[in-house]
Design a protein around this nucleic acid. Structure first.
Lengths: 157, 157, 157, 157
DNA sequence: TTTT
DNA sequence: TTTT
């Protein structure tokens, strides 16, 4: 049993990429507000990385945008890879099995990337940030919008 | 909404520590088998780090041992800290809100650390591994069994 | 472990009542759409009865209205009572432990049963059905808005 | 979103039946102990009816027995039917999507129906009890172990 | 009509 | 590196 249910808001537009075999994979981060404020009285959130595959990846890339609210059902996945300094990096993320699009911040529009880029979210991310050693979401999906070098071992199906 | 439910087996005995204020915190890792084998036909698992606080920490330290099976209800928490090389490390873990002790591998005994160490789990971990930069569970809880320097900001209550 | 998570829309306004001891209890039904259409190609829903107590009852009565969307976390409860014909009636319902108010159908839309009902649900229940022997939600909360004769045994806290 | 996760013990052996089309359906009830005692200091439980279909029905009938512990993932389903007195009966049950067999009360044996009847659970139920008007689990699955008159509308796939 |  |  490995079950996760989240309701949160996207911190950015989803990024849609493809494996060498052409399998669609969407990644995004969801901010889930904590129920209570911390000792300093501030509202905090957890920022949880989500991975969606195949048809669900396409749906997420099409319907989700920065700020929108979504309910995500999935499972926690842990994996590791060696970064370019040869250190093993451990990643914990949620593999989405079902996503329900909720009301969220507006029908979309207005936001950061409105108007352009309806198919996927790339571009709004400072380049050079991916492949960063510590970025838990940076690897192994590198170049947005086109095939990348990812092992079939990462496919969860 | 941030809900996690896991059933898995402990990879090691829990480690019980205390914050400077004397609050008990137990950490352990649970291996949750994936429903399907991978392309190579191997059974894989996700290794998910769990944190329990206060009375629940004591219960986990008392009743859980390496190999035992447990059902864990909790929430995903993300946090970050700066490691000793000044790099920001991002951590994703599950904060347990409820733990149910299941049958598991044996009544306890037999296993790696049987007989000794009923109060907490340390010792069975190769020393030198903690404080490793990339160990997502290594920091900020350093010295097992006694108070450590941890900010009150990490207390989830 | 007894965990339920639902996202659905209220079929009616919540009903707020009080036990003889003055404890608030709110009841409402949530329609949760099924993911697939049935063999006849129709969209179906499950109609799930929710009970909330105390402060959460007040919040539900204040913020929820017919048609609104909510995420409900809770647990399944079964109970039974003898109806006025002396037959034992079995009831299965969800005791809410947490409710998140989502966007839903309109910001609220007028009052109680506002006029016309563009969403769905209203008025489609034959009046006189409440207090019917078989209505799984009709009993034991009878008279809306004021104290009623309910055993303390039903209080889940 | 309609998600249920339960860990409980079977109150009886599962009953395995077949629709007119030969689809396997297993039904059983799981007792889930409540975390707290009630005002009278008694330990209470919720008795939750489970329905499993197809291959999962066969697995449940094969591996589950009275007293055994299981983790059930599924969804709440509500349906209604007219009993033989022409009254509409409302049913709330859990449709299992995944069942994990846990340790439970013993490897099986000992129990009520040990030794005999390894394929399905019938027989241990007082006859005449099914088709009772109020039995929330009695209808529409009537005759154990062989095809019965059930509408295709009840198939959840 | 309930289980450990 | 974060959302409402």
């Amino acid at each position: 049993m490995n079950k996760v249910i989240l309701i949160g808001n996207l911190t950015k537009d989803p990024e849609l990429r493809y494996t060498p075999n052409g399998v669609a994979v969407a990644t995004f981060t969801v901010a889930v507000n904590r129920p209570r404020t911390n000792q300093a009285g501030e509202r905090e959130a957890d920022f949880i990385n989500i991975v969606a595959w195949q048809k669900l990846a396409d749906l997420c890339a099409t319907y989700l945008r920065k700020g929108r609210q979504a309910a995500i059902e999935g499972r926690i996945q842990t994996r590791s890879y060696d970064n370019k300094e040869g250190k093993r990096v451990y990643v914990t993320e949620v593999v989405a099995e079902n996503v329900q699009f909720l009301g969220g911040r507006s029908n979309d529009g207005g936001g950061d990337n409105a108007g352009f880029d309806p198919g996927f979210g790339g571009g709004n991310k400072p380049s050079g940030q991916r492949n960063n050693d510590f970025d838990p979401f940076g690897d192994p999906f590198a170049s947005a919008g086109k095939p990348i070098n990812i092992s079939d071992d990462d496919l969860p199906f």
